[in-house]
Structure formats: C-alpha cells, structure tokens
Simulated scan of single mutants.
Amino acid sequence: MSQHKLTYAFLGPAGTFSDMAVRALVERGSLSADYESLPCDSLPEVFEAVERGKADYGVVPIENSLEGSVTAVLDAFAFTSRAEILGEIAIDIHQALLLNPDATLDEVTTIASHTQGIGQCRRWINQNLPNRQLRLADSTAAAAEMAAADKSVAAIASPLAAEICGINVYEEAIEDNLSSQTRFVIIGKGPVAHDGPGKSTLALFMNTDRPGTLQMILSELFFAGVNLTMVQSRPTKQELGDYMFFMDIDGYADEPNIQVALNCLRMKMREVKVIGSYPRSV
C-alpha cells in the first residue's frame, strides 16, 4: 500500500520565494520530502487550502527585514483563519532582473514584480531603469511568467523563477540591501514538538482603547519573566481608531511563566489568542 503524500500550499506559481522556503524547510527536515505542491494564486488561498483540507500544511511569508510585516498574513491569523503557526524559517532574499530571451534592456518598458520585490529594489530601479512603468504581480514568479510572454516586460524575481520559466538572468543581487531576509512560517493544525528554544506568537484584543494598555501588557510580561521580541499594532477593521496587538515572545505557551502571563492578560483583555507556539528558527 502506497504511503499518502503530504500536500504543501504556498503562494505560486512555482519559483516564488515561498516555493524556495518550502524547499528549504524540506532540506532542513522540518517538512517531509515526500510531498506534492499546491501553488495558490494569493495568500488568503493558502490559508483556505489548509482550512478546507486541500493541503496538509501551508507556507506563508510573515515578515521581511526591509519591508516589515506581511499584513495580509497577520490579518488572516487575527480575523479569518484558525490555522496555527507550527514552525518558521528565515531565508536570504536575493532579487534578480529577468529578461525574455529575445529582449534587450533597451526594449524594456515595464518592470513587473510583487510589491515586496519592487520595494526591495527601489534604488536599483531608479538608478538603472528610471521612468519605466511598474506593474504589480501576485508573486515574483508570476512576474517572471509575464516576462516570458512579453519581451517588453522585465521581471524582478529569483533565479529559480528564471530557470523554471526559461528566461534569462540579466543581473543578480539587485536588492538595495544584500542582507535582506524574509521569515516564513508553516501553518496547519496539530501539536508541535518542543525541539529546541521556543517562540510564541500572540494576538491581543483590547476591551476598550484607554491610556496605558500597552504598558499594562508589557508589565505582565515583565513580572512573569517573559521576553518580548516583537510588537505591532493592527486595526481591528471594526471602526476607525480600534487597534489590536501582535506580539512574539520567547518560549513555548505551556511553560509555567508564560502561562502565568497569559492568564493575567486574559483577565484584563477581550481576547488573547495564541496563534502558534513553535521551535524558534536559529
């Protein structure tokens, strides 16, 4: 009897940085090497594939070291999805300028990429291809497909996308900051083994907006001896000026001191949601 292959959903098509993150997680042993890919057209579709059982796991970007958090992913965790974070990995992001094999740089009138790709290469674009039209694509690999179909379009994407689409790498490493990294997370359901130092991601919702709320949260973490590594506010999408907080803390949610902090916060806030408690990437 053949063993069931796992299915991994990610922002497609093949050759995106999300695809690269899946491959890196497989290589590291965090995901099984016996799998089928499920490229999705958007990040919400990745969450939906996991929720509906079309995929066993999803891999989504959550934060870039230059462009900040991926708000569509944060909002999905906070408001629409029951998926949990099961693991994470940070990968180096190296963007390349890709051209149709029949194109020269002078023929390029449009530069296509995902909004993060364009944001990471603004200086290079302004210095080397000023006054070109910028076209947003659903992913960097989708931009590579545009370049493959139209020689007036250059794509900002990975060399892997060029290889898959059969187009040329004109110049590598065009990102403004060569230390750019993106953190990806595995989403799904189920228990997570305590494999090394832990990390937990929280979503905290206030009862009412009042002075000192953030100070109160930080005080509870401090008194419990919990180390805060990230905090960010996001609108709740209910009314103007109504915000909630995302936080990353060191440690697993079932550790005694973190349990103390969470229980104290739950008595003072409308909701404290543990989005995931998982091994910290090193």
Rank of each mutant, 00 (worst) to 15 (best):
P130E: 14
P130A: 12
P130M: 13
R132K: 15
R132Y: 15
Q133G: 10
L134N: 05
R135T: 08
A137T: 10
A137R: 01
D138G: 09
D138P: 05
T140K: 03
A141N: 11
A143L: 00
A144E: 04
A144C: 13
E145M: 12
E145G: 11
A147K: 06
A148D: 02
A148Q: 13
A148F: 06
A148H: 03
A148C: 04
A149R: 12
A149S: 11
K151P: 13
K151Q: 08
K151F: 05
K151D: 04
S152H: 09
V153S: 01
A155P: 04
I156G: 09
I156S: 13
I156Q: 12
A157I: 05
S158W: 08
L160I: 06
L160N: 11
A161Y: 11
A162T: 04
E163W: 09
E163S: 00
E163M: 08
N168H: 11
Y170N: 01
E172W: 04
E172R: 06
I174H: 10
D176N: 10
N177M: 14
L178E: 14
L178R: 15
S180M: 05
S180E: 04
Q181K: 12
T182Q: 07
T182I: 07
F184S: 05
V185R: 00
V185T: 07
I186D: 07
I187T: 07
I187Y: 00
I187H: 01
G190W: 01
P191F: 00
V192T: 13
H194C: 07
D195S: 15
D195N: 14
K199Q: 06
K199I: 00
S200E: 07
T201C: 05
T201W: 00
L202T: 02
L202F: 06
A203W: 14
A203E: 04
L204D: 15
F205V: 00
N207S: 14
N207A: 12
R210D: 09
P211V: 08
P211A: 14
G212D: 11
T213Y: 09
T213I: 08
T213A: 13
L214F: 12
Q215K: 14
I217S: 02
L218T: 14
L218M: 10
A224R: 00
A224D: 15
G225Y: 12
V226C: 15
V226H: 00
V226W: 02
N227Q: 04
T229E: 04
T229D: 00
T229F: 01
S233D: 08
S233C: 10
R234F: 14
R234L: 13
P235L: 02
T236I: 08
T236E: 12
K237H: 15
Q238F: 01
Q238V: 06
